[in-house]
Design a protein around this nucleic acid. Structure first.
Length: 401
DNA sequence: TCTGGGGTCCTAGGACCC
DNA sequence: TCTGGGGTCCTAGGACCC
């Protein structure tokens, strides 16, 4: 009888581990990756490197990844670097090198694909894999009825290591929700395999927050209602949950707590939006810092246009995002008459969006977004496409046009 | 010592059409 | 005059994820 086996593979401390390949002398030390680019290691005459320490950092950056040694000090991804420096001033700080991580990402995914072709990409350092149809996955080994799939996971771990020199952790269960949860249970370099019969013992004691889809807000609300663990959530009265969280989310919470999830793997998908944003070194004001902001704004639009062209998309909506000095977020967006990937057109429409925003406060972040994407080469031979562009003159704020 | 950058999906109200 | 119902698109905000 054939079972559905979904694996979730998560690279262990991915960015930091890639950096350790390059600077093996840092192995065993607390280290974080993050911040800007002004803390590059300096090569010494004797071949060693001089590294920046957290104590030397000043700015608004956050840690992207921390080694397990750094985590022992309470550091974790997302922590502000100034705060991190207070906790572990001597920890090494390395700049982020996305190109290197992307190269490793491609390598590990290709290594997995050689064993199991059904893969859902979930970002730079994790994937779901459908193991159900992979030869050997349904075999028993000795007295272990699931020995086959366990051995397969071991071979995948080995293949990832052979291809990249990096370790990963794998959760294997009948669905994505449980596998995602399980890949985290025995990090680093773990393989965690569970089925329905293990849910009460292995899953229910865990904090509700560990469920992918319960974030800070939902967790705080659950906590206030006296629900801390997944088991407590599973035991909640359905109507009571729905009363507090709504029909849709309430039902989903209950299903998730029971480990039920029938989402299929999504093995390919098109981008829906692309965006570029930047946080300033100091908060800026639309009037007082006009010139500086204008240059940043245009730069963002140019980079966004570049991304669109490089990836072969055109956008039919353009939006702008501000993060105010008090961290509130404002967004404005408008739909274009005809799709574009042109920097000047993006800049123009993004400018119209900004005109619709209240600009009395200082803000710390500016972003530009391209939505409603379609493929640039889709010869979408609509003879009225050009005419629609003219209809755009009915925009609420006729600009300098 | 305040919290990056890049995404997805959902909700909800209003416009507009039939 | 008061009163429909359904459907789609647009927009703003928010939760969540890596």
């Amino acid at each position: 009888m054939s079972r559905r086996w979904i694996a979730h593979l998560d690279m262990d401390a991915f960015f930091a581990s890639v950096e350790l390949l390059r600077y093996p002398e840092l192995r065993g030390q607390p280290m974080v990756v993050g911040g800007g680019t002004r803390h590059q290691p300096v090569a010494q005459a004797d071949g060693t490197h001089l590294f920046s320490r957290l104590r030397d950092y000043a700015g608004r950056g956050v840690a992207t990844t921390a080694t397990y040694e750094a985590r022992a000090f309470g550091l974790h991804s997302g922590i502000g670097l100034m705060k991190a420096a207070a906790l572990a001033p001597d920890a090494v700080l390395l700049p982020v090198d996305f190109d290197a991580y992307r190269r490793c990402s491609r390598l590990f995914k290709a290594a997995v694909a050689a064993h199991a072709p059904q893969i859902e990409d979930r970002g730079i350092d994790e994937i779901y894999i459908d193991l159900s149809e992979v030869p050997g996955a349904q075999d028993a080994i000795g007295d272990d009825p699931h020995g086959g799939v366990r051995a397969l996971a071991g071979r995948i771990q080995q293949a990832v290591h052979d291809a990249t020199g990096l370790s990963c952790s794998i959760g294997i269960t009948p669905n994505k929700l449980l596998s995602k949860l399980c890949s985290d249970l025995e990090k680093p370099h773990g393989i965690t395999l569970i089925t329905e019969v293990d849910i009460a013992q292995r899953i229910w004691p865990l904090p509700a927050r560990r469920i992918n889809g319960i974030g800070p807000k939902a967790n705080a609300k659950l906590d206030a209602l006296g629900i801390r663990t997944i088991g407590e959530l599973a035991a909640a009265e359905p109507q009571w949950l729905i009363g507090h969280f709504g029909q849709s989310y309430g039902n989903w919470l209950l299903e998730a707590a029971h480990g039920r999830d029938d989402r299929p793997l999504v093995t390919s998908r098109e981008a829906k939006s692309l965006s570029r944003e930047t946080t300033f070194e100091r908060d800026l004001h639309a009037r007082h810092d006009r010139a500086e902001l204008g240059a940043i704004f245009t730069g963002l639009c140019e980079r966004l246009a570049d991304d669109l062209v490089r990836r072969g998309y055109v956008a039919r909506s353009i939006g702008v995002k501000l993060r105010l000095d008090d961290f509130r977020i404002l967004t404005r967006e408008l739909t274009l008459g005809a799709p574009t990937a042109d920097a000047a057109a993006i800049r123009h429409h993004a400018g119209l969006c900004v005109k619709r925003m209240p600009l009395d406060r200082r803000f710390r972040l500016l972003g530009v977004r391209a939505g409603q994407l379609s493929r640039a080469d889709d010869t979408n031979a609509d003879p009225f496409e050009g005419r629609k562009e003219e209809g755009q003159l009915s925009l609420p704020f006729a600009d300098d046009a």
